[in-house]
Nucleic acid binder design. Structure first.
Lengths: 157, 157
DNA sequence: TTGCTACATAGGAATCATTCCTAAACAGGA
DNA sequence: TCCTGTTTAGGAATGATTCCTATGTAGCAA
């Protein structure tokens, strides 16, 4: 499925959503990205074309698209929300250095058995695997660092 | 390993952490909980015993304990951070109704192969599986609801 | 084509978790 | 017991997200 404007507008129609220039541009930017952008990322990307665009609108649009089932909110960490228009079943690899997220579509991961030890009446509807590690670039800079590799900043010295 | 005060204080010493009453109480509350509490939860739990306790101190303490490797930050959703003192390898089941988190220790989940399709120089160091679904209680209330089951509040009507 | 109406947008203010800053308190070693 | 560096508490600051509201506009119906 190529990403024509037509195509997007039809998707919106099917979901009962009005198709406005801003909404279309935001969704298009998200579909074209594989970087799991934040609301702010999308704002920065669409802003040049629509200088009046409000970050607010990006948030609103994303929540509408999410409710319509056209985008997923990818929650890596409790920091800002990141979004994904890739609806096919997939999992994520997160680099703990640069925080980039890669998609993984290994079919073996889509056949995990339901975990044992759950209450009988708990119904699992989906699952996601989040792999963590370091990408090549971040591994190099980790090695060249002499300081501690830990994440945030409590023990400052 | 029972949870004596001695025990906790020794752990702190081993990590080079001073052992203060507040710190001990916060860690103890976390170890005793299986609910993956937030900083605020822990504050509410310890506050009665230490009325002068500051929420700030809870945040600081958690970040120190996390850096020391005594607690893990469990990030379910991009909302507030939740914490876990269970250091043995395990995964999570999240109820999308009540947002409660259960631990899953199915050993089959600890032997997943590294996913295919990654750049060669990406090094995976850990992974976690997050199962989502509805617990018994929330399934019941979902059935009795006639309104839409969607998550947040964009299309209000 | 024109008008209507409900949904969208923009902008500013509000909220809420978390972090920053700083002065006073205190744990643990000398 | 004294000293020093860590910890604590409290208030202010930050930053993502949501709320509020007036204006704009897409899409339907006449």
């Amino acid at each position: 499925m190529p990403l024509t404007l037509e195509n997007i507008q039809q998707k919106f129609r099917e979901c009962g959503l009005k198709s406005t220039p801003q909404r279309t541009a935001i969704y298009q930017a998200l579909v074209q990205s594989t970087a799991h952008p934040t609301a702010e990322d999308l704002f920065a990307q669409v802003s040049p074309t629509y200088p009046m665009l409000s970050l607010n609108t990006v948030y609103y649009t994303l929540s509408v698209l999410r409710t319509a089932g056209l985008v997923l909110e990818v929650n890596i960490g409790h920091d800002r929300a990141r979004f994904d228009a890739n609806l096919s079943p997939h999992h994520h690899v997160i680099c703990q250095g640069c925080q980039n997220i890669l998609d993984v579509m290994d079919p073996r991961l889509n056949r995990l058995a339901s975990p044992s030890g759950l209450p009988d009446d708990f119904e699992i509807s989906s699952y996601q695997v989040a792999f963590r590690g370091y990408c090549g670039a971040c591994r190099k800079s980790k090695i060249s660092m002499t300081t501690s590799p830990s994440g945030k900043r409590p023990v400052s010295s």
